[in-house]
Computed example of a mutant assay.
Amino acid sequence: MKLAGAASIAGLAGCLEGDDENGEEADGENTIVAGTAPGFPPFQMVEDGELIGFDIDLLEAVVDETEYELAEWEQLEFDSLIPALENENIDVIAAAMTISEERQEQIAFSDPYYSADQSILVQSGGDFQPESLDDFDGQTVGAQSGTTGETVVRDDLIEAGIVDEDDYTSFDNYVLAVEDLESGLIDAVVLDEPVAATFEAERDVEVAFVYETGEEYGFGIRQEDEDLQAALSDGVAAVEESSEYEEITSTWFGE
């Protein structure tokens, strides 16, 4: 379930010596390092030691439309991506990151490349089958730290007085959250709709309902890197206008 261009961790590490695919010396100014946070299928994950996913294939296709060269992928926890970008340890974030006003105070984004809402994931056939957030009274819930799912929990459940702070568990990634859901340690998980669909197809969980947030994902860039921001936005447009975006989407979402 991956394109031929999916990123091999070992293979990309070999690019660090400064050579491009043709063995020619790469322009250091145009060489960029991407950061992502595995554990968010089908956007980014590691299988058999290989970094794969929608974001991986899409960013590589987008960069191919620019004068930049993608030298390396760094794997980090989601909460560590923006600090790593600001510290110049990476140059672009490709991690299904929602464009928000709060994040735009720290970083810039490319034009959007994907739209999504939030899903409420519960145990398949379990006792807790909510139809709205109001049904969460007295229930335990989980989400991944730093994500829109966590924002929904904090703003629309905890701040609204529906869920107690003590009944919320923050996870480093959604794989851990879904494992606790399957084990009955929590009653529900709030996460991005396409990711929830992937877990629903592969694990003993199901989507109870979709909570509309109208969010859009973008590639994160430092605010001062205006040339890279423009190049990635142009690259997103070029890939979307070609058949490549549809091919990548079909590979990872079957759409």
Rank of each mutant, 00 (worst) to 15 (best):
M45G: 02
E47M: 04
Y114F: 14
S243C: 06
E216L: 06
A116H: 07
F136W: 03
D91I: 05
P112T: 08
D192T: 10
D91M: 04
G220K: 07
E101L: 13
V63H: 06
P194E: 05
V122P: 05
V236Q: 00
G146W: 00
E216G: 01
V195F: 03
F219P: 10
Y245L: 10
L185D: 15
L181R: 07
S124R: 13
D117L: 14
V141A: 11
L228I: 14
D137G: 08
Q104N: 11
L70K: 02
T251L: 01
Q44F: 00
D134T: 07
N89V: 00
E101Y: 10
Y113D: 04
L76M: 02
D91F: 02
A84E: 00
Y217V: 09
D64M: 07
I107S: 04
Q223H: 05
A230L: 13
E179C: 09
V122D: 06
L228G: 13
G161W: 03
E165L: 11
V189K: 02
E74W: 03
Y174A: 15
D117K: 13
I248V: 05
S242M: 06
L12S: 06
P112F: 03
L81D: 01
A237M: 09
I158S: 11
M45C: 03
A61T: 02
S110N: 10
N30H: 12
N30E: 11
E74I: 08
P42M: 00
F136V: 09
T98W: 01
R154A: 15
E101G: 06
G220E: 02
R222C: 03
S233N: 05
E247C: 03
E67K: 14
E224K: 09
F78W: 04
S145M: 03
F43R: 00
G18A: 03
E224A: 12
S115Y: 06
D172R: 14
V189A: 05
V163Q: 10
D166M: 11
A231C: 14
R154C: 08
V92K: 00
F78N: 05
P41L: 04
I56G: 01
E60A: 13
V189L: 06
Y168P: 08
S115L: 04
D204G: 12
R222E: 07
L81Y: 01
A13W: 07
V63I: 15
E206V: 00
D19T: 12
S8L: 04
F40D: 01
D180L: 10
E88W: 06
E69I: 08
V205N: 08
G14H: 09
G214H: 08
L176I: 09
A188V: 05
S124D: 11
D164Y: 03
I56M: 02
G146F: 00
T213M: 12
Y174I: 14
S119A: 15
V207M: 10
A238H: 04
A160E: 15
T251C: 02
E159Y: 07
S183E: 15
E165D: 15
D19Q: 06
A196F: 01
I221D: 14
D117N: 15
S170C: 07
G39E: 00
I162M: 10
I186L: 15
E247Y: 07
D135T: 04
R154H: 09
A230V: 09
F253N: 00
E241V: 03
E102S: 10
Y168M: 14
Y68F: 12
G138P: 02
S80D: 15
E215Q: 13
P194D: 01
L12D: 11
E150L: 05
Q129E: 10
I162R: 11
G28A: 13
D225T: 11
E102Y: 06
P83C: 08
